[in-house]
Simulated assay, not measured.
Amino acid sequence: MSSREDETLARAAVAALTRQLELMPKPGLPDPRDLGARITRQDHRALRWSAKTLVPGLTAMAACARRNGAATPELRAELGAIGRCTEHSTRLAGGGHRGATWVLGLLVAAAAMDPGARGRELAATAKKIAAHPDRRAPRRPSRGSSVSAKYGAAGARGEARAGFPHVRRALDVLAKARTAGTPEADARLDALLTVMSTLQDTELLYTAGPHGLRHVQAGARGVMDAGGTGSAAGRAALDAFDVDLQERGWSPRGSGSLLAGALFVDALPVTAARVPV
């Protein structure tokens, strides 16, 4: 893999994040609608602009993984350092992508280290990287780690160490929906809601507590139980769920980051070496 291919992976990851941002309506998450009344208070154009600042950092992560060639503690530490620098640059450009930096950073590194891996194989490679502790991480606890410790939630770190089960679930939903002829936008919304229905989102736990998390999970399941976003009943349930989260001021941001990760993995080209004979 060359430096050009490292950048190609980074740009593919940012394109996946942009596709997630463009999707609508996303309950409690920023999308292209008028954000003046949206609960996130984040301008959609600013988020799309700041997403571009991830390219240099993700390129560096890909190059680092390619050079190391194995999921070692040293690689994990280097990726963590690059990630923190990337988060700082993104904050200066408008911020809003901390969770996506973690998810996409690990998946981009896995794709660079194991170029033939796709789907579950790629998630398994990312799991090996995440299994190591970040020895250079600041000692002070983050909001996510504090909430995880308080409620026993897996959090972003646990999700990665489990091999990104929600990314895998989203990929399964996308594949099933496409086979059924579901429009792409509806397939992606269904994948988002599937993630939202079971994810232990630490941002939600911090904002709304366990009751709020269960409420959001139930709302997402309600849309899917009504037939998904491609059905009239499912769309009505989605609209009601969206209004509900706006009024409550709750944002399931972890689900959006994981959908971006799934869209990145989904967009990777299938290589001849991995196609069954």
Score class of each variant (00 low, 15 high):
residue 14 V to N: 12
residue 269 P to I: 00
residue 101 T to E: 09
residue 239 D to N: 06
residue 164 F to M: 13
residue 232 A to P: 00
residue 154 A to N: 07
residue 219 G to A: 07
residue 141 P to G: 14
residue 100 A to W: 01
residue 256 G to Q: 03
residue 174 L to P: 07
residue 101 T to G: 14
residue 9 L to W: 05
residue 84 R to K: 03
residue 272 A to I: 07
residue 131 A to E: 12
residue 277 V to S: 15
residue 112 A to P: 05
residue 170 A to E: 14
residue 97 H to A: 10
residue 232 A to F: 00
residue 149 A to N: 06
residue 148 S to I: 13
residue 150 K to V: 03
residue 255 S to P: 01
residue 39 I to P: 01
residue 213 L to D: 13
residue 5 E to C: 08
residue 205 L to F: 04
residue 16 A to M: 05
residue 117 A to V: 13
residue 96 G to K: 11
residue 230 G to K: 10
residue 55 V to A: 07
residue 211 H to I: 02
residue 74 E to V: 07
residue 89 S to Q: 11
residue 38 R to Q: 15
residue 220 A to D: 01
residue 259 L to A: 03
residue 135 R to G: 14
residue 163 G to I: 09
residue 102 W to D: 06
residue 87 E to P: 04
residue 95 G to D: 11
residue 163 G to P: 02
residue 275 V to C: 04
residue 100 A to P: 02
residue 19 R to K: 14
residue 87 E to I: 06
residue 24 M to H: 15
residue 103 V to F: 07
residue 16 A to N: 05
residue 29 L to S: 07
residue 145 S to V: 12
residue 139 R to C: 06
residue 137 A to Q: 15
residue 98 R to Y: 00
residue 22 E to Y: 01
residue 35 L to Y: 06
residue 171 L to P: 08
residue 7 E to I: 05
residue 263 L to F: 03
residue 3 S to T: 09
residue 33 R to S: 14
residue 218 A to E: 06
residue 112 A to M: 12
residue 168 R to W: 00
residue 29 L to F: 07
residue 247 E to P: 00
residue 202 T to L: 05
residue 131 A to H: 10
residue 12 A to K: 14
residue 258 L to P: 01
residue 148 S to F: 06
residue 274 R to I: 06
residue 106 L to R: 04
residue 168 R to T: 09
residue 164 F to K: 14
residue 69 G to M: 11
residue 76 R to P: 02
residue 107 L to N: 12
residue 265 V to H: 03
residue 274 R to K: 13
residue 265 V to E: 02
residue 47 L to G: 12
residue 56 P to L: 08
residue 90 T to W: 00
residue 39 I to T: 13
residue 55 V to F: 00
residue 41 R to K: 13
residue 37 A to T: 02
residue 156 A to E: 06
residue 123 A to Q: 13
residue 163 G to M: 08
residue 258 L to H: 03
residue 147 V to R: 05
